[in-house]
């Protein structure tokens, strides 16, 4: 069992991951099949860091462990070995499957406001203003505040998840396919928003995407993952010019 520490990391970094190994326990209450009554390792000895204000891209084949990594970093998965060091606060997650992560009984306004309420710094009317502004910036507008999650389209829900994660300006945001359900015009607006806020508040991102061009456009550095291991890592421009692994080449140049 690993532990999340708050101090003892390099002052430039918002996150340091050291020798992270993650297993899934398949012997849950559901399974009786003996083949599955075992631990399966999905992440192998990952080590990397994210600096303040940095956008780190993460790419790799479906099922290679990207979401698992994000979940371990934000504490949803506790069954790991290794170290995860954060500076300042709990990272926010933008989930790949937004419907599952939004409280179905609450209104959009309530959901987006929740992180502000928990933080407890602003009074109700300032919170409301911040929520309306945030809904506007993700292209929804305050008229959506009264709706419930199931009363939105898939891409609108994804934007609620984005608004919720950004509203408190957390130091680190784990964005798991954050723009995959958006048409490219709104996608472009959201990417600009992520970068604007990043600049304004020194936010850092772990940015998971299957869209290599999006990674190229917004990330500083990127990591390539294959079957639970980081096989290549580096500055985006350099890596695109000069991928060393066959797998990376295929990923970057297969169209």
């Amino acid at each position: 069992m690993g532990k999340i520490q708050i101090d003892s990391l390099h002052p430039n970094n918002v996150l340091e991951v050291k020798n992270l190994n993650v297993w899934y326990n398949n012997s849950g209450i559901f399974n009786s099949n003996s083949r599955l009554k075992s631990k399966i390792q999905v992440l192998y000895d990952l080590s990397f860091s994210i600096a303040h204000g940095e956008i780190l891209g993460l790419v790799g084949e479906s099922g290679c462990g990207k979401s698992t990594l994000a979940k371990a970093i934000c504490g949803i998965i506790r069954n790991y070995k290794g170290e995860i060091l954060h500076s300042g606060g709990i990272p926010q997650m933008i989930f790949q499957d937004p419907l599952g992560s939004l409280n179905p009984a609450k209104s959009i306004g309530w959901i987006v406001e929740e992180p502000l309420r928990l933080k407890g710094e602003l009074d109700a009317s300032s919170r409301k203003r911040r929520v309306d502004e945030m809904l506007e910036r993700v292209g929804l507008g305050s008229q959506f505040a009264g709706r419930k999650p199931h009363e939105l389209s898939g891409g609108q829900r994804q934007r609620v998840s984005i608004a919720t994660s950004l509203i408190c300006h957390p130091r680190l945001i784990l964005a798991d396919e954050p723009v995959s359900s958006l048409d490219v015009t709104i996608q472009s607006q959201i990417l600009d928003l992520l970068m604007e806020l990043g600049k304004e508040f020194q936010l850092s991102y772990l940015f998971i995407s299957h869209d290599i061009n999006v990674i190229y456009q917004i990330c500083d550095r990127m990591m390539v993952m294959q079957k639970g291991e980081i096989i290549e890592e580096g500055d985006v421009a350099e890596l695109f010019d000069n991928p060393s692994k066959e797998y990376t080449k295929r990923l970057l140049y297969k169209e």
Binding site: I55, V184, T185, S188, L191, M195, Q217, I218, D220, V236
Partner: peptide
């Protein structure tokens, strides 16, 4: 037209570092 023009490409990075 706007949609086609917004397709992400590798021509230009948004991020200046």
């Amino acid at each position: 037209k706007r949609l086609i023009a917004a397709i992400p490409t590798r021509d230009k990075r948004r991020r200046q570092t």
